[in-house]
């Protein structure tokens, strides 16, 4: 299946901003994060199609996965 992974803030350094990727059906967020070499402890916000999810969540064809480190403002 095709998904789009989007990275933000410091996660972009040495990686990419947005990239379409092929994954086998049933792949989880954790698998994508591991493959990117992002330590789980550094993850702040994890969204699939704009909704907060846990690392065990399965991805579906056409999903957009957005990963942010812990950031804030206001």
């Amino acid at each position: 299946m095709q998904i789009t992974t989007k990275l933000f803030a410091s996660f972009r350094i040495g990686r990419f901003a947005a990239m379409p990727q092929s994954w086998p059906a049933g792949a989880t967020v954790r698998q994508v994060v591991d493959q990117l070499g992002i330590p789980e402890g550094e993850l702040g916000i994890v969204l699939i199609n704009g909704r907060h999810v846990e690392l065990g969540e399965r991805l579906n064809e056409g999903d957009t996965l957005s990963l942010f480190p812990l950031v804030g403002g206001g």
Partner: peptide, 8 residues
Amino acid sequence: VLVNVLNE
């Protein structure tokens, strides 16, 4: 940094 956070 929140522009992209809130947009997503």
